[in-house]
């Protein structure tokens, strides 16, 4: 691999490709009021996460570059400008999609817009926690009637 500095932030071009890829990984859903991962800004999370994943970062950077090159050679356009079918066809051939999915999923499901749309409170679990209903311990009535189950030892 070249001597490129992979620790640099993504360039504007790379971010545009990444955002477009993320919208394919998790597309928007009008029906569920959920944004696409690119639209939700998950690219910034992925950029930050990959700075800690030193082995993976070059793979993704190279992968995005290859993807752009293939988009232009096969379809004559940038990846972002391709049709849904064309994007899908290209992405299906990319090895970097699975490691990218991991970070895309993490970034997406802790994104504020997504958490709200899932009906969860916009706060961490602590210090407020969650209310739960009282237990119905009458369910135990049949178990209480069982004879002892543990074995005793021979004297």
């Amino acid at each position: 691999m070249s001597e490129e500095n992979f620790e640099r932030p993504f360039s504007a071009d790379e971010l545009r490709t990444l955002t477009s890829v993320l919208d394919e990984i998790i597309p928007p859903s009008v029906e569920r009021n959920l944004p696409g991962a690119g639209e939700a800004g998950v690219a910034a999370y992925v950029d930050a996460a990959l700075r800690k994943a030193v082995e993976l970062r070059p793979v993704i950077v190279q992968g995005l570059a290859d993807l752009e090159a293939q988009a232009r050679s096969r379809f004559g356009q940038s990846f972002a400008a391709l049709s849904k079918t064309e994007k899908g066809a290209l992405l299906n051939e990319q090895g970097f999609i699975f490691p990218l999915m991991l970070h895309a999923y993490i970034g997406y499901y802790q994104n504020e817009r997504v958490v709200s749309a899932l009906g969860l409170p916009l706060r961490p679990p602590h210090p407020q926690g969650y209310e739960m209903e009282r237990s119905d311990l009458s369910l135990l009535d049949v178990v209480r009637r069982r004879p002892k189950m543990f074995r005793t030892l021979p004297e």
Binding site: E24, I25, I26, P27, G88, L91, I97, M101, L102, A104, Y105, I106, Y108, Y109, Q110, V114, V115, L118, L120
Partner: peptide, 18 residues
């Protein structure tokens, strides 16, 4: 939680992209 559901689902081959 939502993140762990996605990652566990992915591990089980039940959380496709797209």
């Amino acid at each position: 939680g939502p993140v762990s559901t996605a990652l566990w689902g992915m591990q089980q081959g039940r959380m496709p992209w797209g």
